[in-house]
Computed example of a mutant assay.
Amino acid sequence: MRYAFRLAELLGHTPDRRKRPGTIKSIVEHTGLDRHQVASLLKNEAKYIPLDALSRICDYLIDHGYAPADQLPGALFAVNAENFWELLARRGEIEIVLGVRENADTASPDNATVVASDAVLFGELLNGVSTLGGAAKHHGLNDDDDSSVQQVPMPDRLQQTLVWSPGQVSLEDARTRATEVFEGFVEAQGDRGMVCIGSVKSNPVVELLFADAFGCTPFVTEDDVDDVSARSCPFFLRYRDSDPQPGGASAGLRLSKNEDAPEPGFYYEKDDGTWDYAGGKDKDTALVFYLFREALGRLDMVLSGFSGRATRLLAKTLAIRGEEFWPPVYEEDGLQIGAYLVQYDNTDSKPTREDLLFNSGGAAQIMPLSRAAIAKRIARR
């Protein structure tokens, strides 16, 4: 069992000095601890903490009203997840974001819709979080004298949030709503998670999440970079010609100024720095991405299929093979990043309505993305 030190989470501290100025200075002056030690504790990087230092930190939290004495020092520690579904279930709050589309023939919100494939994935996400992907029944039982109580981690709150899909309203309105939602999540305090369902084609919060993860400017195309190695994201969604095509760092029409992306779908960087195409004539693809900041207890996640079929198949894959999206591809300095592309073989038969209703699933190849490609971008952000 692994533990995380939650000092930054209790203080609402972020590494951005403009948002939380003077946190380290305040703790140092009150406790007399070394500045570097405090910084290490805030980042959850300390290998150990002396009891004297722990006592002083507790005094600081009590004196400044961050936590009551009867909750310390326990409130400073959290159990780290040991699998994909537990990573979600251990969050105090989870916000699930979906893109919504408006009927062009009417301005009434009664006719606005969420795509059916996204709804299928949304349902499977709720099932996985509430049952630990079906493993909750095997979770440890505590036998009391009169009853057995099942100890299963569970969020205190699940919230659904809707944002405008690109092409349904003006790009400015879609981005304004997305920014409002994402900034509200980032600025909140406490153990929390955000899960974006859909790709940047349908959910603009996805672009904001990737931009925040890899330190780039959202909604600004990188199709014109001189070399593909300069792209901010280690993966890239090439739009169909018929898709809405909002500018973004994580999606576009070209890999770089000098390198084309001839086919729609997902591209990704390999260990050797070259890029490959994850699609093909008989392939469909989905993306699973998550980033967990241990010190903040904050989880950012994207579950995205390139097509409606890939989205539905991803729901099935998460249901029966969720354990294969763990452990994270990258894990350094209190930062855990999982990034996976999932390839599905296309069927020979033409899609029917029954495919949506029954979602029979399909053979899936789960491909962890390059740790080196991710590490390179984390280092330069």
Rank of each mutant, 00 (worst) to 15 (best):
A4P: 00
R6H: 02
L7R: 00
L11T: 00
K19E: 06
G22V: 02
S26V: 01
H30I: 00
H30Y: 00
G32V: 01
G32A: 05
D34W: 00
L41D: 06
D52K: 13
D52E: 15
S55A: 14
R56F: 00
Y60Q: 05
G65N: 11
Y66G: 01
P68H: 08
P73Q: 03
P73T: 03
G74A: 13
L76N: 00
F77R: 06
A78Q: 07
V79D: 05
F84H: 14
L88C: 11
R90S: 09
R90L: 10
E93L: 14
I94W: 12
E95M: 15
V97M: 00
V97W: 00
E102W: 11
D105A: 05
D105T: 03
D105F: 12
A107R: 14
A107H: 08
P109T: 03
A112E: 08
V115H: 11
A116C: 04
S117I: 01
D118W: 01
G133F: 15
A135E: 09
A136R: 14
H139S: 14
G140N: 07
N142R: 15
D143H: 09
D145Q: 08
Q150P: 02
V152E: 07
D156T: 05
R157C: 12
Q160C: 06
Q160R: 13
T161F: 10
P166Q: 03
V169M: 11
V169D: 03
T176L: 14
A178R: 04
T179I: 08
E180K: 13
V186H: 06
V186D: 11
E187T: 09
Q189C: 08
I197E: 01
S199K: 03
K201D: 04
E207R: 10
F214W: 04
C216I: 03
F219A: 07
S229G: 11
S232D: 02
S232T: 05
L237A: 09
R238T: 15
R238I: 07
D243E: 09
Q245H: 15
P246L: 11
A251Q: 12
G252T: 13
G252K: 08
L255V: 07
L255G: 01
K257D: 05
N258W: 03
P262V: 09
Y268H: 04
Y268T: 09
D276I: 02
A278M: 13
A278N: 07
G279T: 13
A286G: 08
L287S: 05
V288P: 10
V288C: 07
Y290F: 13
Y290K: 07
L291E: 10
E294Y: 02
E294R: 13
E294I: 04
R298F: 06
A310I: 04
T311A: 08
R312F: 02
R312V: 13
L318N: 05
I320H: 14
R321P: 07
G322M: 02
G322V: 04
P327V: 08
P327W: 14
Y330C: 09
Y330M: 05
G334V: 14
G334P: 06
Q336L: 13
Y340L: 05
Y340K: 08
V342Q: 07
V342G: 01
Q343K: 14
K350D: 06
P351H: 13
L356D: 09
L357W: 03
N359P: 02
G362C: 10
G362Y: 01
A363H: 10
A364N: 12
Q365C: 03
P368F: 03
A373M: 06
